[in-house]
Amino acid sequence: MSKYLKLQEELPHIVGRYIDKKSAKPKWVMVVDLNRCVGCYACQVSCKMENGTPYEFFRTWVEVIERGKYPYLRRVFLPRLCNHCETPSCVPVCPVGATYKRDDGIVVIDYDRCIGCGYCIQACPYDARFRNPYTGTADKCDYCLHKIEEGEVPSCVINCMGGARIFGDINHPESIVSKMLAEKSVSVIKPETGNSPSVYYIGYEEAVKAGAPVTVINPKIGVVKEI
């Protein structure tokens, strides 16, 4: 085998394209390390390329949170996506049972059954869903299910240049996510909803710490400044 072919074969493993540790009954989670996110938007762009989401709609997006005034300024990039909650608000409200939670923890939508009523979009506290204008159904992140079934990690994870997004099986004790969750202090967005998200953030508390003038740049809304 030539060196080139060998590299081509090994490269996906070197850059972590494949899920390496998987238990018999996996439960997929994502850890987002905000200290590593550089705000390159590669996750946002690669998700759009992988899933073909319409213009101005996002399955994953990066919010830019600016706090304070120069020279005491802090800027944090906050990658957002469906939190694949343990007790999701979107699942019980669906009038046709088109959205459901799989055994591996992924909340999915049956696009052939969804009627596009928008109830799940309203019920989601994370604004993670949208109504796809082309399909007429609800749409959201499914952790790139088609890739997971092939043993690959989601598109946003493989394309994250800072290594801020880590994906894996929490049920496998040796997986990177299990080790990170055991060692690091993590938090979730809006814990008060009781939804128990499966997307954990490292450094989130610092990012959203109140008390300073704040500006948020959200690709779905635009620039929003605190009045």
């Binding site: 019980p92 409200v93 009038p95 046709v96 088109a98 969804c114 009627i115 596009g116 009523c117 109830y119």
Partner: peptide, 23 residues
């Protein structure tokens, strides 16, 4: 008319979901 897929409206009857108030 508000549905994204209005032709699938009969799904409300085809797939009864007691947990949903809308159903």
């Amino acid at each position: 008319l508000e549905l994204g897929s209005p032709l699938r409206a009969p799904n409300i009857y085809l797939y009864p979901t007691p947990s949903s108030v809308m159903a």
